[in-house]
Simulated assay, not measured.
Amino acid sequence: MANIVCCLIVTLCIAAAMTQECPAGMKKRGNICCKPVTCKKNEDYQLCNDTHTEDRCTPCPPNTTNQDIINTSNVDEQLPGICKEINCNPKVRCLPEAMISNPDDCLKSGIAKCECNLTGGYCGEDPNTCREWEGNVTDLRKGVGLTQICQVENCKPGYYKDKVGYGQCLKHKECSLEEEIIFKGNSTMNRQCGPLTQTTTPTKSTKIFDANSTSPSSDGTADTDKIPVIIGSVVGCIILIVVIFVVVAIIYRRRRGRNNANPGDEEQNRGLAPNGQRMEPQLPNGREGSEPLTNGQGMVDTAC
């Protein structure tokens, strides 16, 4: 009896767990709760197999693509074939009178855009209703192309057509970073590129400069950083010249002052009169320096 009761309790617990709702932010699928994710383009999704785990996104296999963004919160079961094979064969993707207009993008995304085959003489805005051009093929000379609206026009700048007959104007070739333009191209000839003749490889696209214009620096800007150096050098030279001029002027004035000094002063310093005779020292009582002094008794005073 006890075993039967235990079995009933376990069964009720399992049934309660199966009917229990998932926590917020989780997606319930059957008996498990999964955390949904958002898968980007070129990705497939994988739903979780264990409860309270997260769904996963996986890259599409090679040569396959998926152009849809998938949020697994809106998915209840795993669907096959999310990533589809890329097929850019115009005979498969387009009508016989049409062609793929984006072959490079088609190889990446798997999305083929068809347009009427102008090279085959078909035109029209709708690739599903292309019609054959009814004009004279001799009108389609070099530099003149056929448009999708079945009109003839001259090639615009940057486009060319180098053959006579059906076809549209094609865009000029773009030179790579390791190339320079040898021939710019015109309406009847494509642009020609060649290896760079300079020693350094540019980091930006090559620009064409006029031969008479000032050559730019390596980073494409003028050497404006040299201007402060030049100005500083000029100012320094001017200051040096001024200092030299002041020193020379001071020396010149001193020499000139010596030459213009009073000659009597110099002669007096040497003990000579202005007339060149030797000066006698002046003594008290008006005596000349050659007369001896007496003490009033006729005796010579030798105290001096």
Score class of each variant (00 low, 15 high):
residue 105 D to L: 14
residue 106 C to H: 13
residue 107 L to H: 04
residue 107 L to V: 02
residue 109 S to R: 03
residue 111 I to V: 15
residue 112 A to C: 04
residue 116 C to I: 08
residue 117 N to V: 09
residue 117 N to Y: 10
residue 119 T to Q: 13
residue 122 Y to V: 01
residue 123 C to W: 03
residue 123 C to F: 00
residue 128 N to D: 14
residue 128 N to R: 13
residue 128 N to S: 13
residue 128 N to M: 12
residue 129 T to Y: 11
residue 129 T to M: 14
residue 130 C to L: 08
residue 130 C to T: 03
residue 131 R to M: 06
residue 132 E to I: 05
residue 132 E to S: 13
residue 133 W to H: 12
residue 137 V to C: 02
residue 140 L to F: 03
residue 140 L to T: 02
residue 140 L to Y: 01
residue 143 G to K: 02
residue 143 G to M: 00
residue 144 V to P: 01
residue 145 G to S: 00
residue 145 G to Q: 04
residue 148 Q to L: 15
residue 150 C to H: 05
residue 153 E to V: 05
residue 153 E to H: 00
residue 154 N to C: 03
residue 155 C to R: 03
residue 156 K to W: 11
residue 158 G to E: 12
residue 158 G to M: 09
residue 159 Y to F: 15
residue 160 Y to G: 02
residue 164 V to R: 11
residue 165 G to F: 02
residue 165 G to A: 01
residue 166 Y to W: 09
residue 166 Y to F: 15
residue 166 Y to S: 00
residue 169 C to Q: 03
residue 170 L to N: 08
residue 171 K to S: 15
residue 176 S to V: 01
residue 177 L to E: 05
residue 177 L to S: 04
residue 179 E to S: 11
residue 180 E to P: 05
residue 183 F to E: 14
residue 183 F to Q: 12
residue 183 F to I: 05
residue 184 K to D: 15
residue 185 G to I: 07
residue 185 G to R: 04
residue 185 G to Y: 11
residue 188 T to L: 06
residue 189 M to T: 14
residue 189 M to R: 09
residue 192 Q to A: 13
residue 194 G to D: 12
residue 195 P to Y: 02
residue 196 L to P: 00
residue 197 T to L: 11
residue 197 T to H: 09
residue 197 T to Y: 06
residue 198 Q to R: 11
residue 198 Q to V: 14
residue 200 T to V: 12
residue 200 T to A: 11
